[in-house]
Amino acid sequence: MPQMNMIEAIRDALDVKMSQDSDVLVFGEDVGYFGGVFRATAGLQDTHGLHRCFDTPISEGGIVGIAIGMAANGLRPVAEIQFADYIYPAYDQIASEAARLRYRSNGDFTAPITIRTPVGGGIYGGTTHSQSPEALFTHIAGLKTVIPSNPYDAKGMLISAIEDNDPILFLEPKRLYNGPFYGDPHAPAKTWRGHELGEVPSGHYTVPIGEARKISDGADVTILAYGTMVWVAQKVAEDMGVEADILDLRSLLPLDIAAIEASVNKTGRCVILHEATRTSGFGAELAAQVQERCFYALEAPIQRVTGWDTPYPHAQEWAYFPGPKRVGNALRDVMEA
């Protein structure tokens, strides 16, 4: 089985789809000749041609706008937004256009586009290279939002996204590109080599959108996490000796509520993790749904562990990041309640 990091897995997914389907085009800022600032598209222009993998002007609204028009004309564009922090100029095209086109035209026109963009902190990116804006997108009817946490899922879900007939925002936790991150920035960096989810089949396979992945089985507490926080959760639970049922949500909308409900009904305790700011974060949605469905099974208040309600600071990056200490405290609280 080939070993890949998350960048290689994403590139491989693009390569597989571009080889299979001439309707798949890849474009964005610096994605062509150079292969993207994170190298996710490296070599694709060479392999598939200038007309299939190309650079765009620095114009996120324009990038998503042309993607919609191309999709309406039968193509399957995959657009890259260099950092999720840069996506806001494209918000109108995503929220009002891509997500609404099928509805407002009653199926006459559709926008099967995939928008890839790196999210999250951990690389000293400061306020403009670290954001996790997922909740701004899960609030939009007509859009799907997914966020894989490992190479295997990244490839399988990206192929699913490209083949899906709805617009999909594909969030890539950039801190996980080269290896799983367990929350300690001072620990030696791990790579995906040797990790079972770093084993990525070659060729075509899919990971369905809308299904959570069980990271560990446990009867003590349910941990709902996605992106970078999945691996922090795993490490903290292990270190504390807590038998945690950890769900990597992977797909935020559609959400695998059945898996969440089954887990919380089993454990009676729930901790929700995300890197994004707290207020109106996706954790609020998760907490609401858990209490609606599992209220009588709950033995403790639901806990949220999140970034603070501040912009993502630079020097204070690790003070902002919901690291092992914050996660551990919440786990302890919910276990002792």
Binding site: G62, G65, G69, A72
Partner: peptide, 17 residues
């Protein structure tokens, strides 16, 4: 679209396709 102007760049994308 009721959001003005959005179709302009989409049309350009359609033409590129």
């Amino acid at each position: 679209s009721g959001n003005l102007g959005t179709q302009l760049i989409q049309g350009v994308g359609w033409a590129m396709a």
